[in-house]
Amino acid sequence: MVTVIDGLSLGAIYALIALGYTMVYGIAKMLNFAHGDIIMVGAFAIFVTFSTLGHPLIAILVAVVICTVLGVTIERLAYRPLRTASPLAVLITAIGVSYLLQGIAQLIFGAGNNPVNFLASLGVVSFSLFGSQINVSWSSILTVGLGAILMVGLTLFVKYTRTGRAMRAVSEDRGAATLQGIDANKIIMITFAIGSFLAAFASLFYLSKTPVNPTFGSMPGIKAFTAAVIGGIGSIPGAMLGGILLGMIETICLSIPAISSYTTAIEFSVLIIILMIRPIGLLGKKRRVKV
C-alpha cells in the first residue's frame, strides 16, 4: 500500500515533467532537452525563497512564475529563431540551453547540495488497513493529489477550451491551423508556458526526495522523457500513463532488495521492450506523412 502511494507519487512527478516534453514535441515538433533544467531552476527558486522568507506557499508561487517565464523566454530567444531550421540544429540548441542553465546555477550556487525539506517536515499519516499499520508521508499524498488535479485540469483545458482546440490543431497540421487564423507562434509559446508551469510543481515534489544542486533536473528529466516515449510522444494521456507506469516500476523495484540495484536497467528495458512491440509508444498515434 505504501509502495503503491509512493509509486503513484513518483509517477505523478514523472508524468508532470513528461507532459512538458510531450506537449512541446506534439505542437512545436521539437525535443526540449532543457526541460529537466527548468525543474532545477524551479527547485532553486523554492530553495532561495523558502530560506529567505520561510514561507512555503510564497516559495511555490515564485517557482511557478519563474519557471513559466523561463520556459517562454527560452522558446522566444533560443527556439523561435530556428523555427525553419533543421531538427538537428534545434536539438543541439536545446542541449546547449540545458548546459547553459546548469552552468549558471553552478556559478551562483556552487555544485553542492542544498536541502529543502518543508514537504518532508509535514510528517506522515498513520492509519490501519486490514489490521496492519500503514504510514504514508504527507508529501506523497500531496504529490498524488495535486498531480491528479493538475493533470485533470490540463486534460479539460486541451479538450474544451478555444486555446486547447487550437493547440490540437497546430499539433496536427500547422499550415491548416494558420488558415483558421491561428497564430502558431503564440500557441507554441502557450505550450511552453504550460509545460514549464507543470514543471514548477514537479520541482516542488521532487525536492521531497532529493536536495537541489545544478544537475537536480537531469535524472527526473531523462526518466520523464523515457516516460513520454513509453506513452507515445506527442500524446498527453500517454505521458500521464508512461509517467505513472515508470514511477510504479521504479518504486516497486527499489522496494525489493534483490533487484533494487538494477532499477534503472529494468526501467530502460521496459522502454526497449515496449518500443519493440509498439514503436509509437503505448498511446501514440500513427501520423500520416504529409507530402
Binding site: R162, R165, A166, R168, A169, E172, D173, G175, A176, A177, L179, Q180, G181, I182, K285, R288
Partner: peptide
C-alpha cells in the same frame, strides 16, 4: 486547401469551431 486538410484527430464540431477561431 488542396487535399482538404481537415483536422483528422478532431471532431467535426471542433473543426467547424476552429474555422470560427477568430
Amino acid at each position: 486547401p488542396e487535399g482538404r486538410r481537415v483536422f483528422q484527430e478532431l471532431s467535426v464540431q471542433d473543426n467547424l469551431l476552429l474555422g470560427a477561431y477568430l
